[in-house]
Amino acid sequence: MEDAIIRVQGLRTQFGDQVIHDNLDLEVRRGEILGIVGGSGTGKSVLLRTIIGLNRPAAGRIEVFGQDLGQATPEERLAVEQRWGVLFQDGALFSSLTVAQNIEVPMKEHLGMPARLRDEIAALKIAMVGLPPEAGSKYPSELSGGMRKRAGLARSLALDPDLIFLDEPTAGLDPIGAANFDQLIRRLQVNLGLTVFMVTHDLDSLHAICDRIAVLAEKRVMVIGTMADMLRHEHPWLQEYFHGPRARAAQPQKEELLEEAST
């Protein structure tokens, strides 16, 4: 039995009468990159938001780091929240703060670090996500979309989490930027021992960096497995998704990336 970091059981989410997930089960293992795919409206982002507590599930149990979040006291919840980081689609940086100050927010709020140490660690994170030093003093509105995502990633890494949630990390990036971002995620995951929960539509990302892929359909996780499993599966939607015209262009490239990341 592998070590599960996230364990979702019998999850049901609904908005009014509209049921998004029904009896959904999912396990995310320690140290893996899990990609969540599914058609539009299958509730990929809703699942992410439900796990991190922004939506209330109608039924079911969500365990993160072995802590049942439905039963957790506010203190227990906070302890769990400090061990994960979240990257929203467009970075969700606080617009009144500079990039460096954004990264320092969690350090200041939760750990009460002195300013000098915060500045040092913020500089380190800025370098780790591949931003130039002068980006630290820029405001989010002065950055390009790709830089905002990197800055958002740096903020989600501020407390050195064990687990990060990424909501469509490569959406809106050009192919080169997207490939670089994939590589960055892989490198950080390898070097920092992160577990990554990633909602994505990007077939290149799925090929390049995901260890396992979970497919959301029919209000639950229909299939979960490696890319090879996906390619073999016979469900028509999967066939179309992974064998369609766009899928063929996305060649398996994971090994190359792994090599690069480890050098």
Binding site: A127, M128, S137
Partner: peptide, 22 residues
């Protein structure tokens, strides 16, 4: 080896950054 990697990682990213505009 794990600590070694972590320290190398940090050393490779040792670059002072600007925090606020002057």
């Amino acid at each position: 080896p794990a600590y070694q990697t972590m320290l190398e990682q940090v050393a490779a990213n040792d670059q002072p950054a600007e925090i606020e505009p002057p």
